[in-house]
Simulated scan of single mutants.
Amino acid sequence: METPSRSTDTDRDGAPLRSTLVAIGLTVFGLIAAEFATLPAFLFDPVLLEVAMEGGSLGEASMEGRTLLLILNFVGMASAGLIYLLATGRGLSWIDLRVPTKTDWKYLIAGSIGSIVFLYLVSILFMLLDVPAAESQVIEIVGENQTMILIMIFIVFFFNAPAEEFLFRNVIQKRLYAAFTRVQAILVTSVIFAAVHLPMYLIAETTIATLASLSIMFGGSVIFGYVYAKTDNLLVPTIAHAVLNAFQFAMLYIAIEYDIEQGEPAPSMLLDAVAMIPL
Rank of each mutant, 00 (worst) to 15 (best):
65 G>F: 00
233 N>F: 07
150 L>K: 10
74 F>L: 06
45 D>R: 02
223 I>T: 11
97 L>F: 14
273 A>L: 13
12 R>W: 11
111 G>H: 07
198 L>A: 15
262 Q>Y: 07
112 S>T: 10
277 I>A: 14
263 G>F: 05
161 A>F: 01
129 L>F: 08
228 Y>P: 01
203 I>G: 03
114 G>W: 08
277 I>F: 07
100 P>K: 03
66 R>F: 00
235 L>C: 09
226 Y>W: 12
111 G>L: 12
152 M>V: 01
105 W>I: 08
6 R>F: 14
177 Y>V: 11
22 V>G: 07
40 P>I: 01
157 F>Q: 05
209 A>Y: 06
88 T>P: 08
224 F>V: 00
123 S>I: 06
247 F>Q: 03
18 R>S: 10
132 P>L: 01
206 T>M: 06
190 S>F: 00
229 A>G: 05
139 I>Q: 15
64 E>G: 14
213 S>E: 13
258 Y>C: 10
33 A>C: 14
252 L>P: 04
41 A>P: 00
195 A>T: 12
99 V>G: 06
97 L>H: 08
199 P>W: 06
176 L>R: 03
73 N>R: 13
153 I>S: 10
100 P>Y: 07
164 E>H: 03
108 L>S: 11
163 A>I: 06
102 K>P: 00
10 T>K: 13
200 M>R: 06
96 D>R: 14
176 L>E: 02
129 L>I: 15
174 K>F: 06
169 R>D: 12
29 F>G: 01
116 I>E: 07
226 Y>C: 06
127 M>Q: 15
252 L>T: 04
244 L>C: 01
125 L>F: 14
132 P>I: 01
38 T>N: 00
176 L>Y: 02
255 A>R: 01
215 S>Q: 04
196 V>S: 14
272 D>K: 04
153 I>Q: 08
14 G>E: 14
45 D>Q: 03
248 Q>A: 11
39 L>W: 10
134 A>F: 05
112 S>H: 12
49 L>H: 10
195 A>P: 04
22 V>C: 13
237 P>G: 04
107 Y>R: 13
168 F>Y: 15
134 A>S: 12
116 I>R: 03
24 I>V: 15
257 E>P: 01
115 S>M: 05
184 Q>K: 15
158 F>V: 10
213 S>Q: 14
206 T>G: 10
238 T>V: 06
7 S>F: 09
209 A>S: 14
157 F>Y: 07
145 N>L: 09
73 N>K: 13
117 V>T: 10
51 V>W: 01
96 D>K: 09
29 F>M: 05
230 K>G: 08
98 R>E: 03
129 L>W: 13
38 T>H: 00
214 L>E: 08
278 P>H: 03
189 T>A: 01
228 Y>F: 15
213 S>L: 10
102 K>L: 13
107 Y>G: 08
263 G>D: 11
124 I>D: 05
237 P>Y: 11
48 L>F: 02
105 W>D: 00
238 T>G: 08
46 P>C: 13
221 S>W: 11
192 I>A: 03
29 F>R: 04
155 I>S: 07
204 A>V: 08
242 A>S: 06
42 F>E: 01
111 G>Q: 09
47 V>M: 10
215 S>H: 03
211 L>Y: 00
41 A>C: 07
263 G>K: 02
92 L>P: 02
191 V>T: 11
